[in-house]
Design a protein around this nucleic acid. Structure first.
Lengths: 150, 150
DNA sequence: CCGATATAGTTACCATGATAACAAAAGGAC
DNA sequence: GTCCTTTTGTTATCATGGTAACTATATCGG
């Protein structure tokens, strides 16, 4: 996360960047604005998800299983292939979702190491419940509410 | 942080978003790309800072003290005014910086509740050491290396 | 001056990210 | 078949984000 409330002015960035060769102050300013806008948005989303018993990662885990065509379950490593988090974090996230009754975890008949993760009805329902607000927050974030990315 | 490796196609976003009124699929796609690009960049930066005994927040803390004109110290609450983190996190961050010898913390003569934080020589030196690479990473991130924001 | 309130900073505790090291099963060389 | 490596998932531990509740000091109304 990027926590600087007031980004440095273009002039200040230029002052710093001129000391280093090959650095374009405009790009630096853009990168700072990008990180700031995303950090604020991510925080908004986390807060929204928390109000619905989820987190960004728990939500994405549900989405990744739900959106898979022709499949009703994914193995843990298939979920890991789609999400850029460490395995231990995924293990814990799935345990949390399982305790909350949003996914089931069953043994894979062909591979005793592997586990198949499926959404429960409660899992699908939670996803449906959360999606409208999720899209609304994303839409609003890109609708010129002062993130300086427009 | 936003962990989805492969963002949904515009078509898939449209499929979801069409079910909700007033949601512009293009904006949703932009928001997802924004979060993904920033998450990758922030991770790069954290890794860079870690290699120099810092973190993004410790770095920003040093920067806000350093860039203050006409001042050689800031109180903890002035730092908090500039950084969007909770007070306890700032307390711990300053303790870490203090243990590492990068800042000093002195009593304020006029207000016994307050503490004045200053950079040490080691703190300024660390900042100087880290800045070129920092700008280089930001510049490169905005130079069309596949973040789909161009 | 004194009690109530506000401000500055900390401590305690929890959630969620990471890496390292592990157990168990599968797969491959021979 | 047996050994070695790879794959799958977990546990243990740490770093860093958060909120709630606390202490201590300052400030303000009377």
């Amino acid at each position: 996360m990027f926590f600087l409330k007031d980004l440095p002015s273009r002039r200040m960035v230029t002052g710093y960047a001129d000391r280093f060769e090959g650095v374009d102050p405009a790009k630096v300013s853009d990168a700072l604005a990008l990180m700031r806008a995303a950090s604020v948005l991510i925080r908004d989303l986390e807060s929204y998800f928390a109000a619905h018993g989820l987190s960004q990662l728990r939500f994405l885990t549900l989405i990744v299983i739900d959106r898979e065509p022709e499949r009703t379950s994914l193995s843990v490593h298939e979920i890991a292939d789609r999400l850029d988090v460490s395995r231990p974090v995924l293990t814990r996230t799935l345990q949390t979702l399982h305790k909350a009754g949003l996914v089931t975890m069953n043994a894979n008949e062909d591979d005793a190491r592997s586990k198949e993760v499926s959404l429960t009805k409660a899992g699908s329902d939670r996803l449906e419940q959360v999606l409208p607000g999720y899209f609304a927050i994303l839409d609003r974030a890109m609708s010129g509410d002062g993130n300086d990315l427009n």
